[in-house]
Design a protein around this nucleic acid. Structure first.
Lengths: 225, 225
DNA sequence: AAAATGAGTGTACTACATACACTTAATAAT
DNA sequence: ATTATTAAGTGTATGTAGTACACTCATTTT
């Protein structure tokens, strides 16, 4: 392979994070407001440049940690955007990563510091460069993935109710789910164990609490909503 | 965003191509033999560095064209490999692209020039760096994708028989498919039109020829094997 | 005692995946 | 001419998973 390119290549490598947030109903995306030129007053994803000694995955985690205070959040690479003119000011290739968090875990102090804001996924402001495409591809991937891997449970407390779980899936998928069919499917998953406790905060009758049994799940590793 | 990284970032950006080939039965991968140090005598994917003015996708197509003579081949980005030490000699981040071609379209002159060779997907030699992981992820993606998008038809001539089509899918998926069930599914797809001709090269009886009607497919755009 | 609220439950129907074996058309061999 | 050979072509029964749909239950409030 030709090593001489190394000297003449001048492409900056960045990461951009699509941070999806959920609290009780709909899915939102965290964007930061640019208070400076170029592209002042527009919105963008949280991003940063990759350091020489750091893994690409690490770079994404660092960006998220620095700009949000969030640590140990599970992130997944989505895809790499590499059009030569995607950033009209300089040549930057950017790899996107997506994360899914609870909105309340994102602290207000960061909102202030970075002029960040949550936007409903179907009501986004104008975004710089190709960041809109980035959000779209990350959302598609998340919606596919959430159906076959139990990532949703990370957003719930250790003990949660089935109505809570259903609202979570409805929020992520952006569609209503039939209660009985949803429960029928979950009923076949033995890693979802019902406790002898109820949560009475949402109703008079109270809803049974469940927990996600990681060990049991790791044995079968099959999940489908 | 901090532009100063640009000056100090020294990461080379590369593309690596996973070229899957098929002729009549099994799926193979095209590898090139390294006749030089470092990593002499080992095998690697076809790769190259991204040029300053070129799209990432273009870079992948250029690499494929230069090393194989193949033009206008449909390639898809798979994922980006960015571990800091994945290449122990220098920091290189590599985006992988996958293509699916007919083995016979890859000309012998290139085999000689680049010491390239086809290997069955489940009988690969020792590969440099993380190229084995690259092949694995590209294969997984191809096998998922070939079930929901009619990419297989690109490998067949304009007129083809159902036994041919079935062998193609069996080769890509690496499993036998029941003839009747396969045909039952295809029977529901009206973009697959039977001609009044037969191909008698494989049997005395002859198999009806079909063609893929792109216009009809584009209307419905639903495909599932 | 009645009303209100959200939790919880079952069944019938439809669509899709799977398993499985013989007949047909044409040629080649005797 | 008869028979053997080869790959192409065809249908049915069974199981499994998805979907649509409406009432009862437990508890609190009025």
């Amino acid at each position: 392979m030709n090593r001489t390119y190394k000297q003449i290549q001048q492409i900056t490598l960045a990461v951009d994070c699509i941070i999806f947030g959920f609290d009780t109903d709909q899915l939102e995306v965290l964007l930061v407001h640019r208070g400076f030129e170029p592209e002042k007053e527009r919105w963008s994803l949280m991003g940063g440049f990759v350091r020489n000694e750091e893994d690409l995955d690490e770079a994404a985690n660092r960006v998220l940690r620095n700009l949000s205070g969030l640590n140990n959040v599970y992130m997944e690479q989505v895809r790499t955007f590499g059009k030569a003119n995607r950033d009209p000011y300089e040549r930057v290739v950017s790899t996107t990563y997506s994360a899914l968090i609870l909105k309340k875990d994102y602290k207000a102090e960061f909102i202030k510091e970075y002029r960040a804001e949550w936007f409903p996924i179907h009501d986004l402001p104008d975004l710089i460069f190709d960041h809109k495409d980035m959000v779209v591809s990350a959302l598609q991937r998340l919606q596919r993935r959430v159906r076959s891997v139990p990532i949703g449970f990370n957003l719930l407390p250790g003990k949660f109710t089935l109505p809570q779980l259903q609202k979570l899936y409805e929020g992520i998928l952006g569609e209503k789910i039939d209660k009985r069919n949803f429960r029928k499917k979950l009923g076949t998953m033995d890693f979802l164990v019902r406790l002898d406790e109820k949560d009475r905060s949402q109703s008079k009758k109270g809803a049974f609490l469940y927990r996600f049994d990681k060990k049991k799940y790791n044995k079968a590793k099959s999940f489908s909503i």
